[in-house]
Amino acid sequence: MSIEKKVKKAKRGNEKAFQELIELEKNKLFRIAYLYVKNEADALDIVQDTIYKAFISIKRLKDPSYFST
């Protein structure tokens, strides 16, 4: 299934689709966070906060191709 289709499902409330999207992005999120804070625990906290914010605001995402940003 394409990322755009998964995003559309997640926007409709499909938690499994959202989880699959996060699985695709979690390593990139961690690497970026770690580059900023240089601490594994802090980077994991940042990733957790980022995923939470993405989850509560995914319905406002206008273009599914922007999910990873």
Score class of each variant (00 low, 15 high):
Met1Arg: 11
Met1Pro: 13
Met1Cys: 10
Ser2Arg: 08
Glu4Arg: 07
Lys5Trp: 07
Lys5His: 14
Lys8Glu: 15
Ala10Arg: 06
Ala10Met: 03
Lys11Leu: 07
Lys11Thr: 07
Lys11Gln: 15
Gly13Ala: 14
Gly13Lys: 12
Glu15Met: 00
Lys16Cys: 08
Lys16Ile: 14
Ala17Pro: 12
Ala17Leu: 10
Glu20Asn: 03
Ile22Cys: 02
Glu23Leu: 12
Glu23Asp: 12
Glu25Val: 11
Lys26Val: 15
Asn27Ala: 10
Phe30Tyr: 15
Phe30Ala: 05
Ile32Asn: 07
Ile32Gly: 03
Leu35Lys: 04
Tyr36Asn: 10
Tyr36Ser: 09
Val37His: 01
Asn39Gly: 06
Asn39His: 11
Asn39Ile: 09
Asp42Thr: 10
Ala43Glu: 05
Asp45Ala: 12
Asp45Tyr: 10
Asp45Asn: 15
Ile46Ser: 00
Ile46Pro: 01
Val47His: 00
Val47Glu: 08
Gln48Phe: 08
Gln48Cys: 10
Asp49Trp: 01
Thr50Tyr: 08
Ile51Val: 15
Lys53Met: 10
Lys53Arg: 08
Lys53Asn: 14
Ala54Trp: 03
Ala54Glu: 01
Phe55Tyr: 14
Ile56Ser: 09
Ile56His: 04
Ile56Val: 15
Ile56Thr: 15
Ser57Asn: 15
Lys59Ser: 13
Arg60Asp: 12
Arg60Ile: 07
Leu61Ser: 03
Asp63Thr: 04
Pro64Leu: 00
Pro64Arg: 01
Pro64Lys: 02
Pro64Val: 01
Ser65Tyr: 02
Ser65Asp: 01
Tyr66Cys: 04
Tyr66Val: 03
Phe67Asn: 02
Phe67Leu: 04
Thr69Val: 04
Thr69Arg: 11
Thr69Cys: 02
